[in-house]
Design a protein around this nucleic acid. Sequence first.
DNA 1: ATAATAAGTTTGATTTTCAAACCAACTCTT
DNA 2: AAGAGTTGGTTTGAAAATCAAACTTATTAT
Lengths: 154, 154
Amino acid sequence: MLSIPPSEVPRHCNIADALEVVGDRWSLLVVRELFYGPQRFTDIARHTGAPRDILAVRLRKLEEHGVLMRVPYSEHPPRHEYRLTPSGRALSPVLLTLKRWGSENLSGGADPIVLRHSCGAEFVAQVHCKACGEILPMDASDAGKLFVADLPRD
Amino acid sequence: MLSIPPSEVPRHCNIADALEVVGDRWSLLVVRELFYGPQRFTDIARHTGAPRDILAVRLRKLEEHGVLMRVPYSEHPPRHEYRLTPSGRALSPVLLTLKRWGSENLSGGADPIVLRHSCGAEFVAQVHCKACGEILPMDASDAGKLFVADLPRD
DNA sequence: ATAATAAGTTTGATTTTCAAACCAACTCTT
DNA sequence: AAGAGTTGGTTTGAAAATCAAACTTATTAT
């Protein structure tokens, strides 16, 4: 009778990795702002509500992790704007799923950010089975029977 | 010539709402754990790495927001396990997109959490145009030209 | 010459986080 | 029956992060 000993260390995974980079109070709001186009420091501060000192630290961190980049728009004085990198734009599904979860599962109302296709319609995120294509309903009324995790239990 | 005055208040939206609930260092890791099935306090603490006191506060908050529920498994002493609600299970697309972003955009490696369809294959998240169905590539090599935001700029 | 803009940095007070110790209620072992 | 172990937290005290507001530096506009 084989039994796996209880692990004393936290589970490390890609979700944890991702949260290490964008899992704080402000980072994803910064990314949201940059989806509206390149932005300057003061605008990001105003629209996210982040304190300026914290924002400065976050922007450096996001730059280090390749989520955004600084692009100069003036020398004398040196000034730059912030712009998403491809990696930063690749966060759109995260924002879209978060947005949808918020609108469907939290009482609230405002729904201002909308990403649109160039054809004019909205973008939406969807989860489906890689093989058979069955769509996982996001309202998850009975999602329980739809998926299982495979992992060492202890 | 009409121009919108600069807003002094941060933009409020569903993304911000969602982050208010699950946008901290531990909450989404708690949800990840609960996807493996109902869990007890000590197991969640061990597997997420969250300090016990913080975890207690987060679990209460997540319960208040309807993400999870306590289900008794013993009286004398009163004990319960934590279980996702439908609203909590509806976070699976958020976890899946975060996971995918982490694995494709951050150097790292571990990829332990896998949600599977009952048919055995993996679930994946995808962003597409609601109308014409065009898929937004998640590597976002040139996603820039694929979508635009419509919002008051100031 | 004065005021305004821009991108941060500094300051000092308040909050949050953390690890480790502790507690209460029970069960299991000897 | 006494002592050790388990479970689900709470308490404590120190360290770190957050915050709002004031400040700095460089430059342009009036």
